[in-house]
Amino acid sequence: MLHIINKSPFENHTLDSCLRVALNEPGAALLLTEDAVYAASKGNVIESKIVDALGKVKVYALWPDIEARGMQDRVIEGIKMVDYGGFVDLVAEHSNCQSWL
């Protein structure tokens, strides 16, 4: 399953809940969009959660949202960047997806 998150990890606990579930699932992928891309940046209290997740599932971030927020030089290594076309490909590649609110 492709798990999509769009809210900042500093605003709510959706990322925690998503990871709690998704990290159990082989083949799961996480896509960070909109304000959730702050979770893709280094040097903050969330970083270790993402680094841990990278060892278990694939993590993607939407490049236009990264760039819009000035996070392009801080992206955690191992996170793959996708553009809008790549977003569509991810949705199509996975058997199902969930947009976490």
Binding site: M1, V21, A22, N24, N96, C97
Partner: peptide, 16 residues
């Protein structure tokens, strides 16, 4: 959580 992950992955459509 692990069982929930399995349930979710078996769905055709998941609406949150």
């Amino acid at each position: 959580s692990a069982e929930m992950a399995k349930m979710m992955s078996e769905q055709d459509v998941v609406i949150s």
